[in-house]
Computed example of a mutant assay.
Amino acid sequence: MSRRPTMTIRPCPCGLPEAYEDCCGRFHSGTAAAPTAERLMRSRYCAFVRRDGAYLLRTWHPRTRPERIDLDPGTRWTGLEILDTDGGSAFHTDGTVTFRASYRGGSLHERSRFERVDGAWVYVDGDFLS
């Protein structure tokens, strides 16, 4: 009797149980758009984990987007916790997501603002919280 190797599907870095390809990967590749501000937040966190600066710039509001982004190769992101959302659904034009993103050695606590531009959610800016 032979045993088939079992494949372990690792959940997406954004914290949802789906595989990356079925979760944030489809947003990163451009085959789908994040349907809510929270999903955009999760996909942006995942882009930081994967060092996908192009996606981060593409999903940044044109009004506040920097010309380039420098991702620290030494930062090891270890988890995302969504603490609160306000608005940001399919029925809203703006919203906020409060989150804590952990990295080896600390965490980042932020309330991020999102808006729709041409129907797509984009990151506007955020306030660091203690």
Score class of each variant (00 low, 15 high):
residue 1 M to Y: 12
residue 2 S to T: 14
residue 3 R to E: 12
residue 4 R to S: 12
residue 4 R to T: 12
residue 6 T to E: 09
residue 7 M to N: 12
residue 7 M to W: 10
residue 8 T to P: 03
residue 11 P to K: 02
residue 11 P to W: 01
residue 12 C to M: 01
residue 13 P to V: 10
residue 13 P to K: 01
residue 14 C to V: 00
residue 18 E to G: 13
residue 20 Y to P: 04
residue 21 E to W: 10
residue 22 D to M: 14
residue 24 C to V: 06
residue 24 C to H: 02
residue 26 R to H: 10
residue 27 F to G: 04
residue 27 F to E: 05
residue 28 H to D: 07
residue 29 S to V: 09
residue 30 G to M: 08
residue 30 G to F: 11
residue 30 G to K: 12
residue 32 A to G: 07
residue 32 A to S: 14
residue 33 A to K: 13
residue 34 A to I: 14
residue 34 A to P: 11
residue 37 A to K: 12
residue 37 A to Y: 06
residue 37 A to E: 12
residue 38 E to S: 07
residue 38 E to D: 11
residue 39 R to Q: 15
residue 44 R to Q: 12
residue 45 Y to K: 11
residue 46 C to T: 15
residue 47 A to H: 10
residue 49 V to R: 08
residue 50 R to T: 14
residue 52 D to P: 02
residue 52 D to L: 09
residue 53 G to C: 05
residue 54 A to V: 12
residue 55 Y to P: 05
residue 55 Y to E: 04
residue 56 L to S: 07
residue 57 L to G: 00
residue 59 T to W: 09
residue 60 W to Y: 04
residue 60 W to P: 06
residue 60 W to Q: 11
residue 61 H to C: 06
residue 62 P to H: 06
residue 63 R to E: 15
residue 64 T to A: 03
residue 64 T to H: 10
residue 64 T to V: 01
residue 65 R to Q: 07
residue 66 P to C: 03
residue 67 E to G: 15
residue 68 R to Q: 14
residue 70 D to V: 15
residue 70 D to S: 14
residue 72 D to T: 04
residue 75 T to G: 00
residue 76 R to H: 13
residue 77 W to N: 01
residue 77 W to T: 04
residue 79 G to E: 00
residue 79 G to F: 07
residue 79 G to M: 09
residue 82 I to K: 08
residue 83 L to V: 12
residue 83 L to H: 09
residue 84 D to I: 00
residue 85 T to Y: 02
residue 87 G to N: 02
residue 88 G to M: 07
residue 90 A to G: 11
residue 90 A to V: 13
residue 92 H to C: 15
residue 94 D to Y: 09
residue 95 G to K: 03
residue 96 T to M: 04
residue 96 T to G: 08
residue 96 T to N: 03
residue 97 V to E: 07
residue 97 V to Q: 02
residue 98 T to W: 01
residue 100 R to E: 11
residue 100 R to D: 03
residue 101 A to C: 09
residue 104 R to I: 08
residue 106 G to N: 08
residue 106 G to D: 01
residue 108 L to R: 11
residue 109 H to G: 01
residue 109 H to S: 02
residue 110 E to L: 08
residue 110 E to D: 01
residue 110 E to C: 02
residue 114 F to G: 01
residue 114 F to T: 07
residue 114 F to D: 04
residue 114 F to N: 06
residue 114 F to P: 00
residue 116 R to W: 10
residue 116 R to P: 10
residue 118 D to T: 11
residue 118 D to H: 13
residue 119 G to Y: 00
residue 120 A to G: 11
residue 121 W to Q: 09
residue 122 V to Y: 10
residue 123 Y to W: 06
residue 123 Y to E: 00
residue 124 V to M: 05
residue 124 V to Y: 06
residue 125 D to G: 11
residue 127 D to G: 00
residue 127 D to I: 08
residue 129 L to P: 05
residue 129 L to S: 07
residue 130 S to C: 00
